[in-house]
């Protein structure tokens, strides 16, 4: 599948943004939501910035962005529509949380309720995003449980690291320390989920073959003898993206190092061997490395996925 920049930014940015709100809700539940307005302002700015920026960027690849509102109408059947509806509904508790926390300076009471409600709806929104991809039977690399697991755990992971980096950035070492375990465990879980995902998509039995696509299996092995046209058409440009598969192994290693391994090492070193400014620096670098790694991971998620239509264009099995 063609990896559109707008969709890569949309899925990674909203994932981290929603994840940030999830961990803020956890801090609120623990009763340690920071009171400092500089922190709440920055956290909300980054959180809403990532979500709103991501959602807006997802409309950039539309042929008619001005009609985007129409996408909210078919929630009965379409996961894309459900995602749009959930994203908008989620703004309600998140905004109430923001107002109570930032302007009313609440750290207990109603603000906790809104935070928790917002966190639950954030996770549902991320789930609906994952279902846009996981519901497509035509792309076996997406049509599996690891796609959903991956989106959810990567949201929690990027959110945890982001929240932790923000806490340390503002010198809130108590809250930051409480996020140490969540960050490390979600990093581990995410690495496992992605490794299982990659194992699944490479070991998985083919869903469809050139024989089932043409119905000519009775006559033997089917291969393409003549393409309908000399140049790539829309189908091949959108769904026949091949560059990634050539470099899939290398990109997988780059993604694993930047998104999971390096952050784990940096957080480990930062928390155990460093202190003060150095610890903060290590955790911020870990968050940046994670962001870079996630872009590679998401790029590969799209680029590596084969679509069954390629069976009509020379692939033998998908």
């Amino acid at each position: 599948m063609h990896p559109a920049n707008s969709v890569i930014f949309f899925t990674t940015a909203t994932g981290a943004g929603y994840g940030l709100f999830v961990w803020l809700a956890v801090l609120a539940l623990m009763g340690i939501l920071p009171q400092e307005q500089a922190f709440s302002f920055t956290a909300l700015l980054i959180g809403f910035g990532l979500i709103v920026g991501g959602l807006l960027s997802s409309t950039f690849h539309l042929g008619h962005p001005e009609r985007a509102w129409r996408a909210l109408s078919q929630w009965r059947s379409s996961w894309l529509s459900r995602e749009g509806v959930m994203a908008i509904l989620t703004f309600i508790p998140l905004s109430l949380f923001a107002v109570n926390w930032l302007f009313l300076k609440q750290t207990t009471g109603a603000v906790v309720l809104f935070a928790v409600l917002g966190a639950i709806m954030s996770l549902i929104t991320v789930f609906t995003t994952s279902m846009i991809y996981a519901s497509l039977k035509t792309i076996p690399a997406w049509h599996n449980v690891w796609t959903k697991a991956g989106y959810l755990v990567l949201c929690l992971m990027s959110g945890a690291i982001l929240t932790m980096a923000l806490c340390y950035g503002f010198g809130l070492t108590d809250q930051g320390y409480h996020l140490f375990l969540p960050a490390v465990s979600t990093l581990g879980l995410a690495l496992i989920a992605k490794l299982l995902y990659w194992r699944h998509i490479h070991a998985g039995k083919p869903t469809s073959t050139a024989e089932s696509a043409t119905g000519l299996g009775n006559f033997g092995k089917v291969s393409l003898a003549g393409s309908p046209h000399g140049e790539d058409n829309y189908l091949l440009k959108e769904m026949g993206f091949k560059i990634a598969r050539k470099h899939a192994r290398k990109i997988r290693i780059i993604a694993s190092i930047f998104a999971f391994a390096l952050p784990l090492i940096l957080i480990g070193i930062g928390m155990h061997m460093l202190g003060g400014m150095h610890r903060t620096a290590a955790i911020i670098v870990a968050a940046l490395s994670c962001a870079i790694g996630l872009v590679f991971e998401r790029w590969l998620f799209f680029a590596e996925a084969k679509h069954v239509v390629t069976l009509y264009y020379g692939e033998s099995k998908v």
Binding site: M1, H61, L62, G63, H64, P65, R67, A68, R70, A71, S78, L80, I132, L136, K137, T138, I139, S208, A213, Y234, L235, E238, M239, H307, V308, V309
Partner: peptide
């Protein structure tokens, strides 16, 4: 139609 292309992804 908003041109989101999802239908072309869903069609085998």
């Amino acid at each position: 139609c908003i041109g989101c292309k999802l239908c072309s992804w869903a069609c085998p």
